[in-house]
């Protein structure tokens, strides 16, 4: 493990809303090439952790580096899939147009997407099986299809690190399998994938790395070493035996 590069390093990160800490003194190192789940109860600060790594929320203390540099200098290495519910799906736009938004980061200010960006976006739609729906208005898509469009938008960024906030929320079983297969492909290609995840039962099957979070960091490491009753109990505060024994 020691030979592996560190993709993401979080040092002493503290985040507060209205002076009430939601993340407290988080230290976290995520090695390159892992498929990692962040698990913890509601209000544990899982989404907040991702958002502060991405500079969407300003922490009150601590620092974050992506491959040893601040995030602002490494934007192009990172793709982000927010929670599906965080946007207005009645927005007047099509599936293809949403995926094209993933190309905006590399374009920078003012410059507009052209044929190259369109081609890449169509390929990404194809990869998630949404090509037939490219011109569909986004409100006309099912929940699972919307999530696939979001995934395509991240794929088109062609990043080294992917952050996903609950990609399996409100999707059917077929879509869940399709998404996890794509995430596993990304890992195989050497990418680092960080996923906020709710379903503890699927952690050992889907992921090889896990972080337990509940305002403070409880544990982080390989699933086979640390995904156990002890850490689950520490994180969720109740005697937890369901997930691991299955």
């Amino acid at each position: 493990m020691s030979s592996k590069k560190i993709a993401i390093r979080v040092d002493d990160l503290t985040v507060a809303y209205n002076y009430k800490p939601v993340l407290w003194d988080i230290d976290l190192t995520i090695p390159e090439g892992v498929l990692m789940a962040i698990v913890g109860p509601n209000g544990a600060g899982k989404s907040t952790l991702i958002k502060s790594i991405l500079g969407i929320i300003d922490p009150i203390a601590g620092s974050v580096t992506i491959y040893d540099k601040p995030y602002a200098k490494q934007r192009k290495l990172v793709a982000y899939v927010p929670q599906k519910g965080s946007v207005d799906w009645d927005f007047p736009t099509t599936a293809l147009d949403v995926v094209m938004m993933g190309t905006y980061g590399k374009l920078g200010w003012i410059k507009r997407p052209g044929q190259k960006e369109k081609k890449a976006s169509l390929e990404a739609l194809e990869k998630v099986g949404m090509l037939p729906f490219k011109n569909r208005q986004i409100s006309q898509l099912s929940g699972g299809q919307q999530q696939r469009v979001f995934l395509a938008r991240a794929l088109v960024q062609n990043a080294a690190i992917y952050f996903m906030d609950e990609p399996f929320q409100g999707v059917d079983a077929t879509t869940e399998i399709a998404i996890i297969n794509i995430l596993k492909e990304l890992r195989k290609a050497g990418k680092t994938v960080v996923v906020v995840h709710h379903d503890l039962q699927t952690v050992p099957e889907y992921f090889d790395w896990v972080t337990f979070l509940n305002v403070k960091k409880i544990a982080t490491g390989p699933v086979k070493d640390i995904f156990n009753d002890d850490n689950l109990t520490k994180t969720y505060g109740i005697n937890y035996k369901v997930a691991v024994n299955q």
């Binding site: 969407i56 934007r75 982000y80 927010p82 736009t93 949403v98 938004m101 980061g105």
Partner: peptide
């Protein structure tokens, strides 16, 4: 394009640097 992405998805817009 900046107005569009920040109106549709402020989180992504911020992460992309807009």
């Amino acid at each position: 394009k900046e107005l569009k992405v920040s109106t549709f998805d402020a989180g992504l817009s911020s992460a992309l640097g807009f």
